[in-house]
């Protein structure tokens, strides 16, 4: 089962997206674990994550996160800000699974 962790500044706005993504996953009938966390708290999930999705507000950390976590086999991407703005959980989930 794929594990997706959404990371943003406080983990607040991404947690809204998480619930939309969970609903989308159920509809699409895919088994996936999705959660949101604050950037400062990501260490808690670093041994338990396949895909890291960054909120647009911390997009500037992409390079650093890639350098740190890609060698450990994780995939890192920034969530498209348009999809983020309209909380398009289905699209974000689909793109994450295609990574």
């Amino acid at each position: 089962m794929k594990k997706i962790t959404l990371v943003c500044a406080a983990g607040m706005s991404t947690s809204l997206l998480v619930s939309k993504m969970k609903a989308a996953a159920q509809k699409m009938n895919v088994e996936v674990e999705i959660r949101a966390t604050a950037e400062s708290n990501f260490a808690e999930f670093e041994n338990n994550t396949d895909i890291i999705l960054l909120g647009p507000q911390i997009g500037y950390t992409l390079k650093r996160m890639k350098e740190k976590y890609e060698p450990r086999g994780m995939k890192v991407a920034v969530i498209n800000s348009l999809d983020y703005g309209v909380m398009n959980g289905a699209k974000v989930l689909k793109e994450a699974l295609e990574m």
Partner: peptide
């Protein structure tokens, strides 16, 4: 304006406020 061309409601505006502010901050850090 939302995707379908209609006006945004308060929830959509709030998200837009977060996204635009967040993008601005991210660009500044870069």
């Amino acid at each position: 304006f939302s995707k379908n061309g209609g006006p945004m409601n308060i929830e959509q505006l709030t998200m837009k406020l977060i996204v635009e502010s967040g993008t601005a901050k991210s660009k500044d850090m870069e």
